[in-house]
């Protein structure tokens, strides 16, 4: 996970078929809706993704592929400050 400079653009994650094939600059870029979506299925390869993250006091970029060779627990949840 590399430390990421803080910009003003609205940064978001990329995933699945939408992963950029070259370059990493996606700050402030317009994004089109995905047509062919890659859907997660048990027994199949997990869709790759890359996303801005908060990790132990710093802002970083996290991707699934950086944990290749390790077990990963991936947890989605509805939102910060929710009570469940």
């Amino acid at each position: 996970m590399a430390e990421v400079a803080i910009g003003c653009g609205r940064v978001t994650a990329t995933a699945g078929d939408d992963m950029p094939t070259n370059g990493r600059d996606r700050l402030g870029s317009e994004r089109a809706p995905q047509e062919a979506e890659m859907m997660a299925t048990a027994g199949q390869k997990a869709p790759e993704f890359s996303a801005p993250a908060y990790h132990k006091g710093g802002f970083t970029e996290v991707s699934l592929s950086e944990f290749a060779g390790k077990w990963v627990l991936l947890c989605f949840y509805p939102g910060d400050f929710t009570f469940v």
Binding site: A13, T14, A15, E37, P47, F76
Partner: peptide, 15 residues
Amino acid sequence: AMASDQAGNIGRAYG
């Protein structure tokens, strides 16, 4: 790491 997926791209890929 707490990842941010503001546009829901990862969420869509994982259904």
